[in-house]
């Protein structure tokens, strides 16, 4: 298992894609967070004018948190893609053959990929969160607003933001084992994260039973881990408690991985 882990880790770091994606994520998150930080201080950042749901982003610490956790809300596609590609590139370049030659125990291969995905996820989570919180805090400080960084609870939010992003990478590995076609996988990720889930959450947020359902969507579960949330504020839908969000998102990862194990990884490799 140790050798398989090192092999999986080396697979990721010997190609360029991971740092290209990480760089794009940093720039994108820093930009979004800076804009959001400015917006909340102008009082225009109130998509939260919404129907007074709890945690509605008014001002103060809650608003600051939805800025700092912007990576969990808008940036989770990055660790998700990195995790997915760890599997799909193997099929795209047919390196799945040497992979299974050097480790014929397919459970071990899958476990190593999930674990290595988690490690990459921590990297993306920490760096993405630092980028978002750093840019956001900088803008707030420049505007003379409180940054909230002197509160221990804010640091807890940041840590949970990184954790949420790390789990997303593991979800990505699971998704990759189910959907090995790289193009299809990336299209599905973009369609789901950028369009389908946001729309679903807004629409489901209109009814009370819909709210109950929408809290279990993967994006909402991810946000629940970190706490702050742009969408839930916008729709006025409360999130799950952090630990339940973690269980739900880890559940998505495990269900997808199990599905991949009994489909893709059971098949003949030819």
């Amino acid at each position: 298992m140790g050798a398989a882990l090192r092999t999986e880790y080396r697979k990721v770091v010997t190609t360029r894609l991971w740092w290209v994606l990480l760089l794009v994520m940093v720039l994108y998150m820093a930009f979004l967070s800076a804009v959001m930080a400015w917006a909340v201080t102008q009082g225009a950042g109130a998509p939260a004018g919404g129907p007074g749901g709890p945690g509605g982003a008014g001002t103060g610490v809650d608003a600051v948190r939805s800025v700092y956790t912007i990576a969990v809300t808008f940036g989770y596609a990055f660790p998700l893609v990195v995790g997915t590609l760890a599997v799909t590139t193997e099929y795209r370049h047919r390196t799945i053959t040497p992979t299974l030659l050097l480790e014929p125990r397919r459970d071990v291969v899958l476990a190593a990929k999930l674990a290595a995905g988690g490690v990459m996820g921590v990297l993306f989570g920490v760096v993405g969160t630092v980028a978002a919180a750093g840019a956001g805090a900088l803008v707030l400080a420049l505007l003379g607003e409180p940054t909230g960084l002197d509160e221990a609870s804010t640091w807890g939010v940041l840590a949970r933001s990184a954790l949420a992003l790390a789990v997303w990478a593991v979800v990505g590995v699971g998704l990759g084992t189910v959907l090995t076609n790289q193009v299809a996988a990336v299209v599905v990720i973009l369609a789901f994260t950028q369009f389908l889930e946001p729309v679903l959450r807004l629409v489901l947020g209109l009814t009370s039973w819909g709210q109950d359902v929408s809290r279990y969507l993967p994006g909402a579960a991810g946000e629940a881990i970190s706490g702050g949330s742009f969408y839930s504020d916008a729709a006025g839908v409360p999130l799950l408690p952090a630990w339940q969000g973690l269980l739900v998102l880890v559940g998505y990862a495990l269900v997808l991985a199990a599905l991949g194990r009994v489909t893709t990884l059971r098949r003949d490799v030819g």
């Binding site: 140790g2 050798a3 398989a4 090192r6 092999t7 080396r10 697979k11 010997t14 190609t15 360029r16 894609l17 590139t89 370049h93 390196t95 040497p98 050097l102 480790e103």
Partner: peptide, 16 residues
């Protein structure tokens, strides 16, 4: 993987 160097290709599998 076309983006990997020949040596890195071998280093990937070396632990196993």
């Amino acid at each position: 993987h076309p983006g990997r160097t020949g040596l890195d290709h071998l280093r990937v599998y070396a632990p196993q």
